[in-house]
Each structure stands twice: as C-alpha cells, then as structure tokens.
Amino acid sequence: MEFFLVSLLNGVSYGLLLFMLSSGLTLIFSMMGVLNFAHASFYMLGAYFAYQISTAVGFWPALVLAPLLVGVVGGAIERYGLRRVHRYGHVPELLFTFGLAYLIEEVVHLIWGRIAVDYRIPEALDFGAFQVFDSLYPAYRVFMMAVSIAMLGALYWTLTRTRIGLIIRAALTHADMVQALGHNVPRVFMLVFGGGCALAALAGVIGGNAFVTEPAMAAAVGSIVFVVIVVGGLGSLAGAFIASLAIGVIQTFAVALDWSLLDTFREVGWTGEAARAIGTIKLSQFAPVLPYILMVLILIFRPRGLLGRRDT
C-alpha cells in the first residue's frame, strides 16, 4: 500500500511535468500549425539558465527569471527565424526547429560542457513533506506538483478570462478575421511562441534539479512529449493533460511489475530456445518503451487521439 501510494504520487508528479512541456507545444501547434521540434530544447535551456541564475542570486529569482529569459529567446527566434521560413510551408518550419534543436544542444555543449552541471534542489525545499506510512515523501516533489497545478490554473485563466486569451483563441481558428479586426496576429504568434517556450522553460527549472541538467536532457524528453500530444489528440489541451498523466502513471507502475513474458509462455507450456530469447524481458525493463507502444495502439484504434477533433 505504501508502495502503491508513493508510486501514484511519483507518477502524477512526473505526469504533471510532462504536461507543462506538452501544453506549450500543443498551444503553439494549434495556433500556428508549427510542430516545434526544439520544444524540449527550451526545457533544457530553462534548466541551464536556472542553474546559472541560481548560482548567482538563488533559486527563487531563477524560478521567475529563467522562464522569462527563455520566453524572450523563443520570441526572438520566432520573429527572426521561424517567421522567415513560414512562407515555405510547415515542413520547412519543422526542419528549422529540428536544426534549432541540434544547434541549441551544441551551444549548451559550448557554454556548459558535456557533463551534468551541479544544479541542486534549494535547501529550503530539501526535506520530507509528509509521512506516507513509514517513509517521508520529498517536499520538492510536492512543490513540483504545486507549480504545475498553479501553472495549469494560470494558463486556463489566461485563455478563458482575459482579453489576450480571447484574441489567442480567436486567432486559433480565424486568424484572418482577427487580423481584419485590427489585431496584430504575427505579434500574437510571437507571444504565443515565446509563452510556450517559457512554459517549457518553467518545466526545465523545476525538472532540471529534480532529475539532471545535462545536454542530453532535451533528447530524452523530446520524443515523449511528441507522444503525449499525439496520444492526447493534436491541439487539445485537455487531451494533452490526460495523456501526460496517463503516461506518467503507466510508466511509473510498469517499473514495479516484475512480470515477464516467460511466465506466460511457461503457462502455455512453451519453453523452447525462442521463448527464452524473447520472453526473459520483464515488464519493468519495458517501461521506457511503453509510451511509444501506447502511441502506436492509439494510432491504430483511434487515429485522431483521445480528444482530438481535427482530422489531418
């Protein structure tokens, strides 16, 4: 029971982190049609910026400053890079962000080196928050969940209750009309792109010290985030939310199960060489692959994703 609860909490906190990443990606995609391949790179930049800022002025300013900085960088990239390739179509845009991801990784190598930097959890949050049976649950994980949920609330509020949210939602579907009404749609695009990057960076700030801040961290989550938005349904924030949590929880629990195919084969009386060759893998070893398998299953049985509407 203790194990179950701890795993559930772990799963949810990981899932919420995934959602912070995928929400920005989903927003950018549904608004501009741009699939930002470099999205996870902004997550990485967020972690590195936070590391740099926190060594100078501490973690709390970094929590605010790093996402803002990355947001500015993102906006600049949209303004001076992405907008220029926009005229060639969506595939070149994707290629541009692909090249960008590549370049950002190299820049990180250039400035911070190839090994992990020592970006630590702040002392103030380095304690056990509450008792789960006979073990303490780390406060930082609770903090991660709190930040994610706060961000989720803020995002929802911005999109549904503010004027800019209104324009963004209108520009989602009727960009030309919004333009005709006198709004600067390109600037809205820039804002959304920068905002999405800032969200990813925020995830980086709180994920970078919980896990590790290293140049490979972008590639590690990049493809998972894509899986999340395919499974959730492209352009659907709610879908991304469900998919993030589902993947977080599934992956966490799969780790716990030592069940292997060999057991099943033995049940049905197949113990040959071939059975041993493919059957000795435990489900827990399979955990990192599960999101991809989930994606393939979704594509076969529900190609538009859990809550997706558009059929492209």
């Binding site: 194990f3 772990n10 590790v212 490979a216 992956q251 966490t252 435990k282 990192p288």
Partner: peptide, 21 residues
Amino acid sequence: DEFIGLGKVKDFAPYVAKIKA
C-alpha cells in the same frame, strides 16, 4: 535483480520506491 536501459531512465523515483518496498 533489475536491469534498466543504458541511459534511458530519467526518473529513478519509481525504482527507488520498488527497492524500498
């Protein structure tokens, strides 16, 4: 007797929970 993919796992908390159990 656990095996993890080389460099694949980023969140070790679930494994630790398992070891603890």
